[in-house]
Design a protein around this nucleic acid. Structure first.
Lengths: 355, 355
DNA sequence: ATGAAAGCGCTAACAA
DNA sequence: TTGTTAGCGCTTTCAT
């Protein structure tokens, strides 16, 4: 066998060097020092250091049946929102001594399925689902095989009657904050721009948009609701293109909107592009509000007013919830955590003025 | 059977069901059908399907000593450039049936070291280094323990006398393309804006900038070379902040630049912010050229003229090179691949005009 | 407080 | 062409 350069030194070498058995070494390595003479563990630790030993994680995984890694499924980290999302998950996992295996599913259920199967085979027992409207079926399958899942957004596995733990922002409230802000600035024709309403969070934002308009005595105009049906890969190019196309089309309406509420910041930036194409200034002629508050909001021109999701806190909760599930003996009822969004007013919104 | 642990069905179950030995099953599973009766492998495959068997990758890893996964170390995927980079690596790896374990080192050598050690312990035998100016020392260590490394950018491990394989764009040429473009537009005072010159690619771009100016009969002005010394985490916020700060400072000079060449697109966008602060229009008063051609270039206002790195091709080469190394018996000389960049002219550059 | 021993599930000599 | 067998390095009862 010409392989095995890795982990040259094993627990046996350490045991020999310390003059103890391998089980004692293992005990020390796993911090089980309860009823062990201090000098024994010291000798072991010294041998570990001297020999430069480090645990062979493959052997440990085979023995214990799992690895200290959580899976993360997102559409693609090439989209800055998911990139920031992934970083937050990694931070939270790191605090618990877990690593993260990233999967860019690209809205492709087969890819996703392949990845999740492979995670299971590699001993991963928990995954965070960034967004996965299409995958309920096979998620039910792997859940049955012991995989714990926490969703970002609330998903119901109708077929299996099974519900997953979830973590999310109050999306309807987020929409309300955005729309009330625009209303306060005097806007009356406010467009809603999104890709397909393929997830609960999108539905909730749309509902929040409508409800807030109604509460202000405005009847939602279906012509101002842009919910384009495109490939769901959440590829950043498509996401911005949706915004651009929507802006161009809606602004050519007989009674065009004076403000846009975008489903996310990338789409909002696409709306910027559409307005520029038509020579319309933001916020002079058109106001735009996004959702998420990715870093990009601060650096686009003008800086984007948006609804902030507390991603860091959300992901910390998701990771804690997930790890709790993984360590739990018997399954209890699904948990759903909802955090509060916050409006961040920047320079893309201004008083409505006649054109 | 509630929550049956992973891998309930093993190769033994399959062997029994197919009426063969486990080694035969293993042979089939690994595609070694050379001298095997077709009906035998068919029976095995049928049993696999019937039982819903899937390989326990932990056991396979322990046995073979490695896993079909490559490591990827980048500063952080929250930076869109590294997000796109990671996606390209994943695409290339997928074509070779490898997965990717992502590590956001955040410019922290200890984090990086921890990650790389853990990769080794988990059976990963190859890693792609997105950018890692600080880590030469421990990279020499793991390389000695059998880890194959391909760097994006050329790194020399001076201490160990060891050089890594590398893959990169011709950075000096990229700078030349950018500067010649600005020169052709009549610009004479062109600033160079970067974080610290901490890597070969930055040094090469700076040299290319200077050389091209000289070739045009212009003496590079050190006051126009901004190479700020900051935390190297490549955090996107810092990267854009460098551009903003540089623009504000340089444009207040007695003889300010009329154009900026930024070390990357994020920094270029930071320059946009600085110009906006000072009320200077792009490209009317100031021209800006970036580097990388991330998607963001197309959606900022105005769309950014930049030097495109062929990331997809670069990463395909990196992955192929890496996998080649991992399968190679004896180590041959380091390889260095250099691809050609391309100028993408958009709307952030225009004829120079007096202020 | 520590050691002996039995595998976890798989692969790969080596046999047959 | 297929089977027998010996571990890979670790954890974990169960003894002592």
């Amino acid at each position: 066998m010409p392989n095995q350069p890795v982990g040259r030194v094993t627990i046996h070498d350490v045991a020999k060097a310390a003059g103890v058995s391998t089980s004692t070494v293992s005990l020390v390595l796993n911090g089980k020092l309860d009823r062990m003479r201090p000098d024994t563990s010291e000798r072991v630790l010294k041998a570990v250091a001297d020999l430069g030993y480090s645990t062979n994680e493959m052997a440990r995984a085979l023995k214990t049946g799992y690895v200290p890694t959580i899976g993360l499924v997102v559409p693609t980290v090439a989209n800055p929102f998911w990139g920031e999302f992934a970083r937050c998950v990694e931070h939270a996992a790191e605090a618990k001594n877990y690593q993260v295996l990233l999967c860019n599913a690209e809205g492709n259920p087969e890819r996703e399925q392949r990845y999740v199967e492979s995670m299971l085979a590699r001993g991963i027992r928990g995954v965070i689902l960034g967004s996965s409207p299409l995958s309920l079926r096979h998620m039910a399958g792997v859940t049955r095989r012991g995989l714990q899942v926490v969703a970002f957004d609330r998903l119901t596995l109708n077929d299996a009657g099974l519900e997953l733990d979830s973590v999310r922002v109050d999306n309807a409230l987020g929409a309300k904050l955005a729309i009330e802000h625009l209303l306060a600035l005097g806007h009356r024709r406010i467009a809603f721009v999104s890709g397909p309403i393929s997830s609960a969070n999108r539905r909730d934002r749309l509902e929040g948009y409508r409800a807030t308009l109604r509460a202000a005595g405005i009847v939602p105009d279906a012509r101002l609701e842009w919910t384009e049906n495109v490939n769901p890969s959440d590829d950043e190019e498509i996401v911005t293109e949706i915004g651009r196309a929507a802006a161009v089309a809606l602004l050519k309406l007989p009674e065009p909107p004076t403000a846009f509420f975008a489903i996310n910041d990338m789409t909002a930036v696409g709306i910027y592009a559409g307005c520029r194409e038509l020579g319309l200034g933001i916020p002079r002629e058109i106001s735009v509000v996004g959702f998420d508050d990715i870093h990009l909001c601060q650096i686009v021109n003008p800086p984007l007013t948006t609804v902030r999701q507390p991603l860091e806190a959300l992901m910390k909760s998701a990771v804690d919830l997930l790890i709790g599930r993984m360590e739990e003996k018997s399954r209890s009822a699904p948990e759903h955590l909802t955090l509060t969004p916050e409006l961040v007013v920047r320079e893309s919104t201004a008083q409505s003025r006649p054109r």
